[in-house]
């Protein structure tokens, strides 16, 4: 009753070591950047604030509302945290939440924590904040709608990413996991979106100083908008493709040098299936994927930096 696990936390054992380590790598880079940025811009006062906010996210996850048929709307909070506290602080807060969920409740594994933080902390912050930032300066309704859409998309993208990680690990075939995960989270995401919007409305009414547009604009530059839009586009293009034509995605993945696992003739005997990650193809694939992801990340950050600098000069 006190604590109900959410489906998206991947436990240990479900991802191969290579996939776990790649996502740890990306997560460590992002969290280090977040630490650097919050230290520079916010100072020591923010540390208790972020700690208590992390506890808030944790406690708010206990607020679920019944929808129908015994299911209830769950709250993950990544988008809300990023919108109200700023993207970097949001990433740190979610990192703390996911670490404690794994350490204290064994909800989500330790070795796969990097992947979990990436899915639920970093992606949600990038999408949630990026899309909300896009609507700054627009009408209030539009801003709130963007926050809601961002929260829903963030949940869906996190689910999509978890599916892809499970697929890359050879835990589950793409054509089963994607419809299942996205189907479940389409509903969970609606709950997330509605609670996020309703909470923002409340905060705007009671503490307008925390939600001013100038403050949001200061917390993250246009780089976040670009990052958010790019990641969203990638997810939006990828998910229908992956669920409707998994073979297509697998073929693309193979052409790009990704795993050829899905292309193996269905009944072929694979003598080396016992070596889940040491195989040459798997390793090179994952390295290629990681390189691509890092490149994209680096580009986004560089773009953001240059835009911030331009903004400051103007």
């Amino acid at each position: 009753m006190l604590y109900s696990p959410v489906y998206m936390h991947i436990p240990d054992g479900f991802l191969t070591l290579a996939v776990s380590l790649v996502f740890w790598g990306i997560t460590i880079v992002m969290v280090a950047l977040a630490v650097k940025n919050t230290n520079r811009s916010l100072g020591e006062k923010q540390i208790p604030l972020m700690g208590v906010m992390a506890a808030f996210i944790f406690a708010a996850q206990m607020l679920n509302f019944p929808i129908a048929g015994g299911t209830s709307g769950h709250f993950l909070g990544g988008a809300l945290a990023a919108i109200v506290l700023g993207p970097w602080a949001g990433i740190l807060v979610m990192t703390a939440v996911i670490s404690v969920q794994a350490l204290l409740f064994q909800d989500g594994g330790l070795l796969v924590m990097g992947a979990n933080i990436f899915n639920m902390g970093i992606l949600t912050a990038v999408i949630g904040f990026g899309l909300y930032r896009l609507a700054i300066g627009q009408k209030r309704v539009l801003r709130l709608a963007m926050a809601g859409i961002g929260a829903w998309l963030a949940t869906m993208t996190a689910a999509l990413m978890a599916s892809l990680q499970l697929w890359l690990s050879g835990t589950t075939p793409l054509e089963i996991v994607i419809p299942a995960m996205l189907g479940v989270h389409a509903f969970i995401g609606i709950g997330e979106a509605l609670i996020t919007v309703a909470a923002l409305v409340y905060i705007e009414q009671t503490r307008p100083d925390l939600m001013s547009e100038e403050k949001t604009a200061q917390e993250g530059g246009h780089g976040w908008v670009i990052g958010g839009v790019l990641v969203t586009l990638a997810a939006v293009i990828l998910s229908p493709l992956a669920s409707a034509h998994p073979d297509g995605l697998e073929r693309v993945a193979e052409n790009l040098g990704f795993l050829g696992r899905g292309m193996d003739a269905p009944f072929q005997i694979l003598p080396d299936y016992t070596i889940p990650f040491l195989g040459e193809t798997a390793l090179s694939t994952i390295l290629a994927g990681a390189l691509g992801a890092l490149l994209l990340l680096g580009l986004t950050i560089l773009l953001g930096r240059s835009l911030i600098r331009k903004g400051n000069q103007a």
Partner: peptide, 28 residues
């Protein structure tokens, strides 16, 4: 109705947020 429930839950989350935020100020 469902809309009312969502609004209530959202207000609860917002309420919890402002209370936590103000508490963190006092703590600091």
């Amino acid at each position: 109705k469902l809309a009312w429930r969502i609004k209530t839950t959202g207000s609860m989350a917002g309420q919890l947020f402002t209370r936590s935020y103000e508490r963190s100020d006092r703590i600091y």
